[in-house]
Structures are given as structure tokens and as C-alpha cells.
């Protein structure tokens, strides 16, 4: 169980997370959504003690992450696919993590097999595609057989087979009574695998409710509900290229 209470993170004059409170419960997949820059990754990094909150608390099973005796057994984390030294092999990377906790080598082989990394396990991670990097991140999260999983954009860059595998995996993990907190921008994916969603914008809570409730309230799909809820909180917005007559024609010689 993850409990976030009145969490605040400021970097100088910028407030990344602004009094956020929510709970991710065991046995459920909690989707964590919000526009780019909303504070999702910062919140996740604070939960696992990588960044210090300016105010408020984040606990896992009632304890601060840094106070856990065996963090890898309590929480499995995949924050971004590039959290591995490019010169190290997947096997070495996972083995080093396992050794901090005295987790046996057989478990390393097991998670490599579970994530389908066997053919590349002894290749340097710098040579991996985005999808293979994601699989390595998920393997790291599963290493300690944790009761809580925090996955930041786990299906990014995965092939369709991989996406289906992650969807089943998180459903299975929740069915076993584990807590899963999962961020994603893929609404149709979340509609399929999340029980509940926490939507944030500009560091503040916008919605925290079961998926079906949010969908019913807006009367459309999860995507439409999300766009309605976050309409006022989008910080980065692209523009359509309005004029089709660009200068390139004139420049061509």
C-alpha cells in the first residue's frame, strides 16, 4: 500500500508537486495520469526516497521508503528505462542489485526469463532498443518479488506482444494482492488494466476514482474524461502547422 499525504516538492521557485494526497491500495492497479510536467515522475521518485519532499509524507506499508530493511522486497520500481549503465550487461546490472539484498543468482536468471531477456542478457545495455530497456527495468522491479510495484510508463517502446504481456502481468500482480501504481499516457491501455485512476495536473490532484466512475461521469471514454479533467492543467501544448506554404519552396535552389 502506498500512502501519499500533502506531498510538496519545490525546486527553487518552481512547484512540481503541490499538496498531493492519494492512496494506492493492495489488490488494485492504480493508474497515475497527468499531462507532461504534472509531477508524476517526481511523485514516484519521492515515494522511493530518491528525492526529498519539501513537505508532506509518502509511505509504503506505513513506513518511509528509506526506513525499510529490505526495500527491494517491499517495492519494485521501474522509473525510466535508462537507469542502467550503458556499459554493463543486463545480467550484471540485475546481479548487482540482487547482491545488495543477498537475493540469490537463481532469482536473477528467473526474472531474466520472465521478461524474455535471455538472448540479450549478456550484452551491454547500451546496445538495447527502447523495448529491451523497458523489459530490463521491469525485470529489476520484479527482482525482490515485492508487494508493491511502481512502474513509470512501462509499455513505452514495447512491441504489441510486450504491451499485452505487461497488461496481463500487472493484472496478475494485483490479483495476487499486490499494490500496483502505474503511470501511462496510453488511455486505452489504462482503461484495460487499471481499476482506479489518480489524475494530477500542475502538481495537484484533479481526480481520484474508479475507472468506471470517471468514465460514466464524462459519458464517453477514459480518454475524453481525461482531456476534460486536465484541460486547464496542460503546460506544454504543440501547435498545428497552420500555413502549408512554408519557406522551403523559396529556399530551394
Amino acid at each position: 500500500m502506498i500512502e501519499v499525504e500533502a506531498l510538496v516538492k519545490r525546486y527553487g521557485s518552481t512547484t512540481a508537486v503541490d499538496g498531493l494526497t492519494f492512496t494506492a491500495r493492495p489488490g488494485t492497479v492504480t493508474g497515475f495520469l497527468g499531462p507532461d510536467g504534472a509531477g508524476k515522475s517526481t511523485t514516484m521518485r519521492m515515494i522511493v526516497g530518491l528525492e526529498r519532499p519539501t513537505a508532506g509524507t509518502a509511505t509504503v506499508d506505513g513506513r518511509r521508503y528509506a526506513e525499510l530493511d529490505a526495500p527491494l522486497h517491499s517495492v519494485g520500481v521501474m522509473l525510466d528505462a535508462r537507469s542502467v549503465h550503458p556499459g554493463r550487461t543486463a545480467f550484471r546490472h540485475l546481479l548487482a542489485q540482487a547482491r545488495t539484498h543477498g537475493i540469490p543468482r537463481s532469482r536473477v536468471d528467473e526474472v531474466i526469463a520472465m521478461t524474455g531477456l535471455e538472448p540479450v542478457a549478456h550484452r551491454r545495455a547500451g546496445t538495447y532498443s527502447l523495448g529491451m530497456g523497458q523489459r530490463l527495468g521491469i525485470a529489476g522491479a520484479l527482482l525482490g518479488d515485492p508487494g508493491t510495484l511502481i512502474l513509470d510508463e512501462p509499455v513505452n517502446g514495447l512491441d504489441p506482444d510486450g504491451v499485452l504481456w505487461v497488461r496481463r502481468l500487472v493484472r496478475d500482480l494485483a490479483a495476487e494482492g499486490r499494490t500496483v501504481l502505474l503511470s501511462s499516457h496510453l488511455m486505452h491501455e489504462l482503461a484495460l488494466c487499471a481499476d482506479r485512476v489518480v489524475i494530477i495536473g500542475r502538481g495537484r490532484l484533479l481526480a481520484d476514482a474508479p475507472v468506471h466512475e470517471i468514465v460514466e461521469r464524462s459519458g464517453g471514454t477514459l480518454e475524453e474524461a481525461y482531456l476534460q479533467l486536465t484541460a486547464g492543467a496542460v503546460q506544454y501544448r504543440g501547435r498545428a502547422t497552420t500555413s502549408p506554404t512554408t519557406t522551403t519552396a523559396g529556399d530551394a535552389r
Binding site: 529490505a70 526495500p71 522486497h73 546481479l95 542489485q97 543477498g102 540469490p104 520472465m114
Partner: peptide, 21 residues
């Protein structure tokens, strides 16, 4: 999950082995 890993915890010897690895 196929097997439940036996409970282990962080130790300095473990961290040392990890850094050497």
C-alpha cells in the same frame, strides 16, 4: 510469480559485493 524469494535484507557485505560486481 513462480517462486516466492526467501526474505533477505540489505547488508553492508551485500552492498560491497554489489559495488564489486
Amino acid at each position: 510469480m513462480t517462486t516466492r524469494t526467501p526474505a533477505t535484507r540489505v547488508s553492508f557485505a551485500g552492498v560491497l559485493a554489489a559495488e564489486w560486481t
